[in-house]
Computed example of a mutant assay.
Amino acid sequence: MILGVPWWVFVMIIFIFLSGFMAFRAMHAEKKLEYQFIEKEGKVYMDRLRAERERKQRQEQEKETS
């Protein structure tokens, strides 16, 4: 007993703090992964828009030359 409290109570408190830290770390990692996914999908969308814009410009140029 430490300060009138059984040792296993201190161990449980340490486990609670460790569990909270691990949950925080997992939440941070998940948020980072989600941000990377959003960035990737946004890039795909912007590439698709750029390709469509270029296609329309080519079609307009072909109409002008015809």
Rank of each mutant, 00 (worst) to 15 (best):
M1W: 04
I2L: 05
I2C: 01
G4S: 03
G4A: 00
V5P: 00
V5H: 02
V5T: 07
P6A: 12
W8R: 05
W8T: 06
V9I: 14
V9G: 00
V9L: 03
V11T: 09
V11A: 13
M12G: 10
M12E: 06
I13Q: 08
I13N: 01
I13W: 01
I13K: 04
I14W: 11
I14A: 14
I14H: 02
F15P: 00
F15H: 05
F15I: 13
I16S: 08
I16F: 10
F17V: 08
L18G: 15
L18P: 02
S19C: 13
G20I: 12
G20P: 05
F21M: 11
F21V: 11
M22Q: 14
M22H: 13
A23I: 09
A23V: 15
F24G: 15
F24Y: 09
A26S: 05
M27K: 13
M27T: 13
A29R: 02
A29L: 07
E30W: 06
E30C: 07
K31S: 10
K31C: 06
K32W: 07
K32L: 12
K32E: 13
L33P: 00
L33H: 03
E34P: 00
E34W: 05
E34S: 06
Y35E: 14
Y35S: 09
Q36K: 12
Q36Y: 09
F37P: 09
F37E: 13
F37D: 06
I38W: 12
I38N: 13
I38K: 15
I38E: 13
E39Y: 11
K40A: 13
E41H: 05
E41G: 00
G42V: 08
G42R: 15
K43L: 10
K43Q: 10
V44L: 09
V44A: 08
Y45D: 11
Y45Q: 12
Y45L: 14
D47T: 11
D47Q: 14
R48M: 12
R48T: 14
L49F: 02
L49R: 09
R50I: 08
R50W: 10
R50P: 04
R50T: 11
A51Y: 10
E52D: 14
E52A: 14
E52M: 04
R53K: 15
R55K: 02
R55Y: 03
R55D: 01
K56T: 00
K56W: 00
Q57P: 01
Q57W: 02
Q59N: 11
Q59E: 14
Q59R: 03
Q59V: 04
E60F: 02
Q61W: 06
Q61H: 03
K63T: 05
K63S: 02
K63I: 01
K63Q: 07
K63C: 00
T65W: 03
S66F: 04
S66M: 04
S66C: 01
